[in-house]
């Protein structure tokens, strides 16, 4: 692979999936794409890269994009997000959605499915409290290969031992030789769909809770900001956003604010002002007559209009 081929590949990946590769990641590209050349019958990496140009097949391009994704995941990863889910997000939704009794949850980078299934298990564990409620869980990912695995819900002995308490294994899985499959009632709780976060996702509708974990880390600041801002538009003002342990909204967008004492948990910023006065300047006079109804505030109306 020549430097200019590497440069081309970097730009290709950045524009297709958002993945940013630094200059010293050649080894990663080689370890991921050399096996692809064997499957596609290209004689080497250069030949493969040459086929990613404007006239290359979409299928090949997708194969390369998928091969470059990092799909590691495990059940109840980092634990705290799922504690937050049961102790904070779920109780809040049970109160706020007492009318519609419908809660929509989206795992925006679901990979092989451990995250949505972990949420499903939390819901099953709390079944006693959620009577009459309907929960929709949607898992999306850019890679069809991981989604296929997620849909089957079949995991190796190694995978079911990282993060999954043994009681949960007994309760929610059935054994198939050395493999373990998620029980049908849990599988039925989750829907799967291929989706690239770089592309428009407004057609998915509004979600009360969005898990978007361990995917933004692969993107540059502008891409992160863009995705976060579009996520905010898919969310009611009392919704929740969950990010990965190494991710934050701080310094990227005002659309979300951290929930105090809940690492990795964010809510749409209530006073979402689209234009903030720069520091040190005096803001235009506020019509501060008594309490302002936030639902009638100009900022909110503007937000409304923006969200359509």
């Amino acid at each position: 692979m020549t430097p200019s081929e590497y440069e081309f590949l970097k730009q290709f990946l950045k524009s297709r999936s958002g993945l940013v590769l630094s200059d010293e990641k050649q080894y990663l590209v080689e370890s991921r794409l050399v096996p692809v050349t064997r499957r596609t019958g290209h004689k080497n990496l250069s030949a493969l890269i040459a086929d990613l140009g404007p006239r290359g097949s979409e299928e090949l391009k997708n194969t390369v994009v998928e091969a470059m994704t990092t799909n590691e995941s495990f059940f109840f990863r980092d634990k705290t997000p799922f504690d937050h889910f049961r102790k904070t997000m779920l109780p809040s939704m049970l109160t706020n959605r007492a009318g519609s009794k419908r809660v929509r949850i989206w795992c925006a980078a679901a990979s092989t499915g451990q995250e949505p299934y972990s949420i499903g298990m939390c819901l099953q564990e709390d079944r006693g409290k959620t009577g009459g409620f309907r929960f929709e869980i949607l898992g999306t990912d850019i890679s069809s290969e991981v989604l296929e695995k997620a849909r089957m819900g079949i995991y190796s002995q190694f995978e079911v031992q990282r993060g999954l308490p043994i009681q949960m294994l007994l309760k929610f899985f059935s054994q198939q030789g050395e493999l373990w499959q998620v029980a049908p009632e849990l599988r039925a709780m989750v829907q799967w769909r291929k989706l690239n976060l770089l592309q428009n996702f407004s057609h998915l509708g509004e979600f009360d809770i969005i898990f978007c974990r361990n995917v933004l880390i692969y993107f540059d600041q502008d891409t992160k900001r863009d995705i976060l801002q579009r996520l905010a538009k898919q969310m009611p003002s009392d919704g929740f956003l969950v990010l990965g342990a190494a991710e934050t909204v701080v310094g990227l967008t005002d659309a979300f604010e951290p929930v105090p004492d809940h690492r990795g948990l964010y809510r749409p910023r209530k006073s979402a002002t689209t234009t903030r006065a720069p520091l040190g300047t005096t803001s235009p006079a506020q019509p501060a007559k008594g309490p302002v109804d936030p639902l009638n505030s100009p900022a909110f109306q503007k937000l409304r209009a923006l969200r359509g």
Partner: peptide, 13 residues
Amino acid sequence: PFDRDIIEAKFQE
């Protein structure tokens, strides 16, 4: 068979 990750995960559990 087990490895470091599994022992850590289970002890944490």
